[in-house]
Simulated scan of single mutants.
Amino acid sequence: MKQNSENFRSNCPINFVLEIFGDKWTLLIVRDLMFKSKRSYGEFLQSNEKISTNILADRLQKLEAAGIAIKEIDKQNKSKFIYALTDKGKDFLPIMLEITAWSCKHDATTNTPDSFIEAFEKDKLALSIQILDNLK
């Protein structure tokens, strides 16, 4: 089922994004899925930002409900779940790249690798394709 802004505060496109991604934890989980190859609950808990277990569970559930992420049983460990971005979640990549580049431009202490910035400035499309290939 395609999610729309019918039950949101407004039909504004900015509000639509904020209703799904409008807190710091959700974007950090998407970051971990997209850029850091994290896929399990335990891996998300190890992120530097130290998300609490109840917030993590809630945000993962919201990402699933919004069609941004899916949860599957791990083939190697049947008692563990793994998460992945859906096509809808992968479509958020250009925005995440722009957020990262903006942060690098305006935060002298950002920990973004120089290689990322160079690749972004040289060829955003090639960088996007490379990241998407890693998500398969």
Rank of each mutant, 00 (worst) to 15 (best):
N48E: 14
K124Y: 04
S40K: 04
F92Q: 13
T110C: 12
T112C: 13
E43M: 13
I117K: 11
A66N: 11
S128R: 06
I95Q: 07
P13D: 03
G89S: 05
L63E: 07
L85M: 02
S5L: 00
L85E: 01
P13S: 06
S128D: 01
L132W: 02
D91H: 08
H106C: 09
T26H: 00
F116W: 01
A108M: 02
P94S: 00
E72R: 12
R59A: 11
F116P: 02
K38C: 07
I51W: 08
Q3Y: 13
L97A: 07
F120Q: 06
E19L: 02
A108Y: 10
I99R: 05
D114V: 06
A126E: 10
S10W: 04
E6N: 14
L135K: 08
D123V: 07
D133K: 15
D23F: 09
F35Q: 03
R31Y: 13
S40N: 00
N111L: 08
K71S: 11
N7M: 03
L45S: 05
C12I: 06
S10I: 03
F120H: 12
W102H: 12
L85H: 04
I129Y: 03
G89N: 05
A57K: 14
F120I: 05
P94I: 08
A126C: 02
E98N: 11
M96A: 15
D58N: 12
H106E: 10
E19K: 09
Q130S: 15
A119T: 04
N77H: 09
L27Q: 11
N4R: 01
L33G: 08
K80Q: 15
K105T: 13
Q46K: 13
E6R: 10
I131A: 00
D74M: 07
K136A: 12
F92L: 10
E121W: 01
L45D: 00
T100S: 09
F16W: 11
N4P: 09
Y41R: 12
N134E: 07
M1W: 04
K50T: 10
V17N: 10
N77Q: 02
F81C: 11
L56Y: 03
A66L: 02
N11H: 10
D107W: 03
G22Q: 02
K80G: 05
I29L: 15
F21I: 09
G89D: 01
E19F: 02
I82V: 11
A84T: 09
M96C: 14
M96E: 13
F116I: 02
P13I: 00
C12L: 09
N4K: 03
F116C: 04
K50P: 03
K24L: 14
F92S: 10
L135R: 12
M96N: 06
S52Q: 10
H106M: 06
K122I: 07
Q130F: 10
Q76M: 12
A66D: 10
N134P: 08
N111W: 02
S103I: 14
K62W: 01
N54R: 07
I131S: 00
L132G: 04
N54I: 08
I14T: 14
G42F: 15
A66W: 12
Q3T: 14
S40C: 01
K90D: 00
C12S: 15
F8H: 08
N111R: 10
D123C: 05
